[in-house]
Design a binder for these strands. Structure first.
Lengths: 168, 168
DNA sequence: GTCGAATATTTCGACATCGAAATATTAGCA
DNA sequence: TGCTAATATTTCGATGTCGAAATATTCGAC
């Protein structure tokens, strides 16, 4: 194409070539790409499962977070746990409270704080969601042996620890 | 919330315990929980890297997607690629076009289609991002050996295949 | 060829999220 | 005690994303 100025694109190819030539890992790209692909599909699957319960993934994060902790948590902590701004958590909790799944009680020891706990209905929803979702999650991993599952979890945990260092 | 903030590792263990207590299969929950945890942290890490370029992860997905393809792509394909609704892609492309990073041209062969390509400025941004290693995923996997990386990618790809069957 | 179904993109209204500011309470310190 | 800084939550305005409907074009059956 005479007259076209191809400089930027050629520049890119050279940059990538240089990166690879400099020892840029094919293995890194492969892992990250695979992880992101899996996460996308996993999110889709979760959204679909949770739609039956009329829950978003974020709302599920709140309920599961409290259930995991085994005790009421503060809005700020829940916001961090589910990766949203504290101001977003306010609205999310409003909706969950309207549906009777969580309840807010002031912390007697520090009255700037609010403690968010599950109601009976919230606990029931959590338990039944886990029970029903596990079936399909087992399907997701059906092609992996027990040893493969252990290995996969182990490797993911190593990456998570590193990410904690970098991000936190 | 008594005491200090639990470490990521404790948090994770409790998550698995809670799922198992609720009736989940441990080997499944361990993998799923780890994958989701990594997903969240990876997203955070990406957002931070891209903030320097004043790009969101979604916008980077558009630019990198076109750059990797080496040719213009359609809005619908880009929407699928970056996991947003087609209607959201319209707005996202509007913004990128306003910034002069992409340009839309009608497809001469199928006029319902639009082809989205990078402008010279778009190519330059992509190149400089790669060059400055802002978006190159190198440190994240530093704790894994080459063999570990291959194994991790292999296992993830198996899960992805299964997810494709279930979700698609 | 023509009509209806299918495909691709955009428009539109509703809503979730964000950052910044406002509000309320506690902690630290002189 | 009294004052300032720090912490926790909520309110508010702006913006991004979604699903459904609208628009434009192509494909296929007859």
């Amino acid at each position: 194409m005479a007259g076209r100025k191809p400089s930027a694109r050629d520049e890119y190819r050279r940059a990538v070539d240089a990166y690879v030539a400099a020892g840029g890992d094919e293995s890194v790209q492969r892992v990250i790409t695979a992880a992101q692909s899996m996460n996308r599909k996993l999110d889709q699957w979760y959204a679909r499962q949770l739609a039956d319960l009329e829950l978003t993934a974020g709302e599920w994060g709140v309920i599961a977070g409290i259930a995991r902790a085994g005790e009421p948590l503060t809005p700020g902590y829940l916001a961090e746990l589910t990766s949203v701004a504290p101001s977003s958590m306010t609205h999310r909790l409003d909706r969950l409270a309207e549906r009777g799944l969580i309840e807010r009680t002031p912390d007697a020891e520090n009255r700037t704080r609010v403690l968010v706990g599950l109601t009976d209905a919230g606990w029931k929803l959590f338990t039944s969601a886990i029970r029903s979702s596990n079936v399909v999650e087992s399907d997701v991993l059906q092609d992996l042996t027990d040893a493969d599952r252990d290995e996969l979890a182990r490797l993911l945990e190593i990456v998570i620890l590193r990410l904690d260092h970098i991000v936190a």
